Amino acid sequence: MADCLKAKPAAEEAKKMTPQQQKMGTCNTEATGKGLKGDERKTFMSNCLKAEPAATDKKDLTPQQKKMADCSTEAAGKELKGEDRKTFMATCLKKAA
């Protein structure tokens, strides 16, 4: 039951993210996906955050695509891999918006 109470503020917090915070989440997810660490990760993050937004910015995504990106960012933050990531993503995507 305590987990249910924690989930709502996290969802509300995600809605309040600035474009820069969203970009940081996306860059972080990419860096984690590439397995970057140390100086290599720092360099990648710096370049990624300086880069202009891609043509398909989050503003252009459908609500489902935005939700998938948010769930993916959260999974990356939790460093989930394999079956744990699949299970988390399935649960996250089923949650009501």
Rank of each mutant, 00 (worst) to 15 (best):
M1F: 03
C4Q: 11
C4M: 03
L5S: 04
K6N: 08
K6H: 13
A7T: 07
A7F: 03
K8Q: 08
K8L: 13
A10M: 10
E12Y: 04
E13Q: 12
K16L: 10
M17R: 15
P19M: 14
P19L: 07
P19R: 15
P19N: 13
Q21S: 09
Q22K: 14
K23N: 06
K23G: 03
M24W: 09
G25M: 07
G25I: 05
T26A: 15
N28G: 08
N28F: 13
T29I: 04
T29E: 11
T29D: 10
A31I: 01
A31S: 11
G33E: 08
K34P: 00
G35L: 04
L36M: 11
G38C: 06
G38E: 05
D39S: 11
D39C: 09
E40R: 09
E40A: 14
E40N: 07
R41M: 02
K42C: 00
T43V: 13
T43C: 01
T43Q: 13
T43G: 04
F44E: 01
N47Y: 06
N47D: 15
C48I: 05
C48G: 04
L49C: 11
L49F: 05
A51D: 12
A51T: 10
E52M: 15
E52L: 09
P53S: 06
A54M: 09
A54T: 14
A55C: 04
T56A: 15
D57V: 03
K59G: 09
K59P: 03
K59R: 12
K59L: 02
D60T: 08
D60R: 14
L61P: 01
L61Q: 15
L61D: 01
P63N: 07
Q64V: 04
Q65L: 00
Q65W: 01
K66T: 04
M68W: 02
A69D: 15
A69S: 11
D70A: 14
D70G: 10
C71G: 03
S72V: 00
S72K: 08
T73K: 10
E74T: 11
E74K: 06
A75G: 02
A76N: 12
A76R: 04
G77N: 11
G77R: 05
G77D: 10
G77A: 06
E79R: 12
L80V: 03
L80P: 00
K81A: 11
K81Y: 03
E83I: 02
D84Q: 07
K86M: 02
F88H: 06
M89K: 04
M89P: 02
A90C: 00
T91M: 07
T91I: 01
C92E: 00
C92T: 00
L93W: 01
L93D: 00
L93V: 05
K94L: 04
K95H: 05
K95G: 03
A97E: 07
A97I: 07
